[in-house]
Every structure is written in C-alpha cells, then in structure tokens.
Amino acid sequence: MGRGRTTTGMVTACLIASTMKFGEQQNDKVAEDDLATEIYDPMDGPSEEEVYLAGEYKTILQLVGILSHGKVAKRMTDRAIDLMQDVQNLRKAIYDYKLKAEACEKGSAKGRQLVNITVNYLYRYGTLIVFANYLIEMREKQGLGVTFPEWLHEHREITKLLERRSLD
C-alpha cells in the first residue's frame, strides 16, 4: 500500500474505534476542543494556507452542510487525520499537491496529473467525513442500520457532491 491508502485505512480504523468507544458527549468534546484551537488574526482573518490546511475547500464545506452531523463528522475526521499524520496528513497532502499543480505550466501533462492526484485526495477526505457521519448515525440507531454502501446509495446528494472534480 502507498502512504495515502495506508493513512486512509488508519484514519478509518481510528474513526470506527472513536465512534464506537465513546458516546455523543465525546464527539461534542472533540468539537469544543477543536473550536478552541481555531485562533486566527482578528484583523486579517485566516490566510489562504490556513483555510486549506484546515480542509476548508468549497466542496468540503458544502458536504459538511448537507450531512446530518457534518461539523462533528469533519472535526472527528480532522482529529483522526492529525493522529495519523506521522504517516501522512491528508489535508496537508491535498494542499501540497494543489500548490504543485498550480506551479505547473497550464495544460501540461504533469499539471493535469497533479490536479488528478489532488482531486483524488480531496475525494478521499470528503469520503472519510461522510463515513464519520455514517458511523455517528449508526451509533444513534445502535447499529441497527444499513451498510455504508447502502447508506451512501440512499444519499445521492452526497455522491453527486463528492463526484465534483474541482479544487475549490
């Protein structure tokens, strides 16, 4: 496996463990803890780098908006990504590849390849957030639900949003 796939597996395992081990109070605590660390310059606001390193791409923010537990799911996913960053930090990888793609000559083969890698990583990040949301919903139903692929099939608006091939 590559670093990206290994990290994805590790983040997925972390999400499952943290969702099943802790209750809603733990998820709320994660959300509160993360809010406390979001300190930006009040005059200028966050820099573009800070926004992207926080995973705040347009597609991700729209995704968070349509999920039943979007904000908590994103915070849980970000926390899991941060815990596994010794292998690779997915948000940082997205941003780094975005910068590399933008530095390439417009329309070049290398530029298209880098954009493709970036978009694939962004899709993976979004899917992890969606999976965290699914786990929260299943915990609320006490595991009496459907499989993730079945659940995702029932939520076509999510798959439509994830399928966008944009770096916004």
Rank of each mutant, 00 (worst) to 15 (best):
residue 1 M to A: 06
residue 1 M to F: 02
residue 2 G to N: 04
residue 5 R to W: 00
residue 8 T to L: 04
residue 8 T to W: 01
residue 8 T to H: 00
residue 9 G to C: 11
residue 10 M to N: 13
residue 10 M to G: 01
residue 11 V to G: 05
residue 14 C to I: 09
residue 16 I to H: 00
residue 19 T to F: 03
residue 19 T to H: 11
residue 23 G to L: 05
residue 25 Q to D: 10
residue 25 Q to Y: 14
residue 28 D to Y: 12
residue 32 E to V: 10
residue 35 L to W: 12
residue 36 A to N: 09
residue 36 A to E: 13
residue 39 I to L: 13
residue 39 I to R: 11
residue 40 Y to F: 15
residue 42 P to E: 14
residue 42 P to V: 14
residue 44 D to P: 04
residue 50 E to Q: 13
residue 50 E to M: 13
residue 52 Y to S: 08
residue 53 L to K: 14
residue 56 E to R: 15
residue 56 E to V: 09
residue 57 Y to K: 11
residue 58 K to D: 15
residue 58 K to G: 14
residue 59 T to H: 03
residue 59 T to G: 05
residue 60 I to E: 03
residue 61 L to F: 09
residue 64 V to H: 02
residue 64 V to F: 09
residue 65 G to A: 12
residue 67 L to A: 04
residue 71 K to F: 10
residue 72 V to P: 05
residue 73 A to P: 04
residue 74 K to W: 12
residue 74 K to T: 09
residue 75 R to V: 12
residue 77 T to V: 10
residue 77 T to S: 11
residue 79 R to P: 07
residue 79 R to M: 13
residue 80 A to N: 12
residue 80 A to R: 12
residue 81 I to W: 11
residue 81 I to D: 14
residue 82 D to N: 15
residue 84 M to F: 05
residue 84 M to K: 08
residue 85 Q to N: 14
residue 85 Q to R: 15
residue 86 D to P: 02
residue 86 D to M: 09
residue 86 D to C: 08
residue 87 V to R: 01
residue 92 K to S: 08
residue 93 A to I: 00
residue 93 A to F: 00
residue 94 I to S: 00
residue 94 I to H: 00
residue 94 I to R: 01
residue 96 D to V: 02
residue 99 L to I: 15
residue 99 L to A: 08
residue 100 K to Y: 02
residue 101 A to L: 03
residue 102 E to M: 07
residue 103 A to P: 00
residue 104 C to F: 00
residue 107 G to L: 07
residue 108 S to I: 06
residue 109 A to G: 08
residue 110 K to Q: 15
residue 111 G to Q: 07
residue 112 R to G: 04
residue 114 L to R: 05
residue 116 N to I: 03
residue 116 N to G: 11
residue 116 N to H: 14
residue 116 N to F: 09
residue 117 I to Q: 02
residue 120 N to D: 05
residue 120 N to E: 08
residue 123 Y to A: 04
residue 124 R to W: 02
residue 124 R to I: 01
residue 126 G to Y: 10
residue 127 T to R: 07
residue 130 V to W: 02
residue 130 V to Y: 08
residue 131 F to K: 07
residue 131 F to Y: 13
residue 132 A to C: 10
residue 134 Y to K: 10
residue 134 Y to T: 07
residue 134 Y to E: 04
residue 136 I to D: 10
residue 137 E to R: 07
residue 137 E to N: 08
residue 138 M to W: 09
residue 139 R to Y: 10
residue 140 E to R: 14
residue 140 E to D: 09
residue 141 K to R: 07
residue 142 Q to H: 03
residue 142 Q to F: 04
residue 143 G to S: 02
residue 143 G to H: 04
residue 144 L to M: 09
residue 145 G to I: 06
residue 145 G to F: 04
residue 147 T to C: 10
residue 148 F to P: 00
residue 150 E to A: 13
residue 150 E to R: 05
residue 151 W to H: 04
residue 153 H to I: 06
residue 154 E to S: 10
residue 155 H to T: 02
residue 156 R to F: 13
residue 156 R to V: 13
residue 157 E to A: 07
residue 158 I to M: 09
residue 159 T to D: 10
residue 160 K to H: 14
residue 161 L to K: 14
residue 162 L to V: 04
residue 163 E to P: 03
residue 165 R to S: 06
